[in-house]
Amino acid sequence: METYMILLVGVFFSVAVYLFLSRHIIRILLGAAILGNAVNLLIFTSGRLTREVPPIIATGPTGTPETMANPLPQALILTAIVISFSFFAFLLVLTYRTYQELDTDDTDEMRFAEPRGQQMPPLEY
């Protein structure tokens, strides 16, 4: 079943990268959200998949099951989800403010830091 998951991870990455290559900043934003999920799934799958048994030690009479899901990737992903959400929110607000300031969502039009037609540095001393 890992194979199917791996193919799905590939689709996630491809879509995210394709969105990132857009000139419209809103599409890049969507790409960032998907890339976060793609990486989470990547980590999750590389820790191997186990069905339905959460990594919780049973204290009751049933005893701890023989196999349980790998807790380590889960711990990594849990914080990653929250952080990528914060990051996403930050990007969103940044986009929003950029749009307000520059009246464009086209990255080619955003020339504040790298203006068109830069002057050659002076050649005298």
């Binding site: 989470n40 999750f44 339905e52 889960q74 849990l78 989800i81």
Partner: peptide
């Protein structure tokens, strides 16, 4: 489905 209820809720 793959044994990560914590992640699921958070997601």
């Amino acid at each position: 489905l793959f044994g990560a209820p914590d992640l699921s809720f958070t997601q």
